[in-house]
Amino acid sequence: MSDNSARMRTIFRTKTSKALNHMEDPRDALDDSYEQQVKLLHQVRQAVAEVATAKKRIELQGEEMGARYGRLGAQALEAMEQGREDLARAALERRAGLEGQVGKLQAQHSSLQKQMSQLQEREHRLAEQIAAFRVEKETMKATYSASEAQVRANEAVAGIGANMNDIGASLDRARDRVAQMQARAQATDELLSSGALQDLTAAPDADIERQLAELASRSDIERQLKAMRAAGTDRASTTGAPSDSSDGWLGIGQAPTP
């Protein structure tokens, strides 16, 4: 991959990320709209309950007035039967005044009944709209999530995704560290072999002992060569060969008996 290509992908990824960050997530907007509609439906239902409560109060008050209206009529009849026309007139006058009050209650009851019917109709329609919106909302959210996943997958395949770039950078760093460690291991091996580095795990004065052992080995070889030259090839082979006994190997490397 050329430097220009890598630079273009980096620029494209940066601009894309900034654009996506400035964009409003439609899933959040859809959820907010749904919550607002649910709140509105709750308010409508609360209004229906309040109207129903007021209507019930009027009904109870109307029933009470109706019972009083009936009692006044019965009292008027009883007063006439007992020859008390004045009491009958008073009862009828009160009942007439009660009729006006009952008429007002009837008008209020009719108005509340109409209002409650309208609110119930709106509640029903709003509930249906919210149910339909919820289905559409979930469908749109699922579609957006699938498209978002597809975009990220395409970016990963194209190598413009932030995660893939991070993975590539990690691999490059790992390769560099492995190469550095291998070179360091080889360098330290060479330094230890040359004696430039001291083996801290070795015994004290081990380097002197090692050099003396090497000198002794070379001296022994020179001694054997000198003996071979002096005694001839046959004599050298006889002298240096181990015996045929089963424990002849014990004499290998031992100094010859004088």
Score class of each variant (00 low, 15 high):
Leu87His: 02
Ala146Tyr: 10
Arg68Lys: 09
Leu98Ser: 01
Leu119Val: 06
Arg95Pro: 04
Asp28Lys: 02
Met8Arg: 13
Ala169His: 04
Arg175Met: 02
Arg134His: 15
Trp249Val: 04
Ser147Tyr: 14
Leu250Ile: 08
Ala67Arg: 04
Met181Lys: 07
Asp234Arg: 04
Ser194Thr: 15
Lys104Cys: 09
Ser217Asp: 12
Glu190Cys: 07
Gly161Asn: 03
Asp234Asn: 04
Ala213Asn: 15
Ser245Arg: 03
Asp3Ser: 05
Ser145Met: 15
Ile208Cys: 12
Ser194Asn: 15
Ala74Ser: 11
Lys226Phe: 09
Phe12Asp: 09
Gln43Trp: 11
Gln120Val: 11
Gln120Asp: 09
Leu250Pro: 08
Ala162Pro: 00
Tyr144Gly: 02
Met116Glu: 14
Gln120Trp: 01
Arg125Cys: 04
Tyr144Ala: 00
Ser117Trp: 01
Leu105Pro: 05
Gly97Trp: 11
Glu93Tyr: 07
Glu81Cys: 14
Pro242Met: 01
Thr238Ala: 06
Val178Leu: 14
Asp207Met: 12
Arg9Gly: 05
Ala54Gln: 02
Lys18Ser: 15
Arg235Gly: 15
Met181Cys: 07
Glu24Ile: 12
Arg229Gly: 08
Leu119Trp: 07
Leu60Met: 12
Pro242Leu: 03
Ser17Tyr: 08
Arg173Gly: 15
Gly232Met: 07
Ala216Thr: 11
Tyr34Gln: 05
Pro26Lys: 01
Arg68Gly: 01
Thr53Met: 13
Asp247Glu: 03
Glu59Asp: 14
Ser117Arg: 00
Pro258Thr: 13
Ala67Pro: 02
Lys56Phe: 13
Thr257Phe: 06
Glu59Pro: 06
Glu35Trp: 11
Gln37Thr: 03
Ser245Val: 06
Ile221Arg: 11
Arg210Lys: 09
Gly103Met: 08
Leu98His: 05
Tyr144Gln: 04
Ser147Gly: 10
Met164Lys: 05
Ser245Gln: 04
Gly62Ile: 03
Ser5Asn: 11
Asp244Trp: 07
Lys18Gly: 10
Ala202Pro: 13
Ser237Ile: 06
Gly251Asn: 12
Ala213Met: 12
Ile221Phe: 14
Glu214Leu: 00
Gln118Cys: 08
Ala230Arg: 07
Leu126His: 00
Phe133Asp: 00
Thr201Cys: 13
Leu126Gln: 03
Ala96Met: 15
Val51Lys: 00
Ala149Asp: 04
Arg57Met: 12
Glu155Ile: 09
Ala79Phe: 03
Glu50Ser: 13
Asp176Arg: 01
Gln82Val: 09
Gln113Ser: 02
Gln36Asn: 09
Ala227His: 01
Leu225Asn: 15
Arg84Phe: 11
Met228Gln: 04
Gly83Pro: 12
Ala153Met: 13
Glu93Leu: 10
Glu148Ala: 01
Ala185Gly: 10
Glu99His: 05
Glu138Ala: 07
Lys39Phe: 09
Arg13Phe: 03
Thr201Phe: 14
Ala156Leu: 10
Ala132Ser: 07
Asn21Cys: 10
Leu225Arg: 08
Lys18Pro: 07
Gln46Ala: 11
Ala255Ser: 11
Leu98Cys: 03
Glu148Val: 05
Arg68Glu: 05
Lys226Val: 07
Ala227Asn: 06
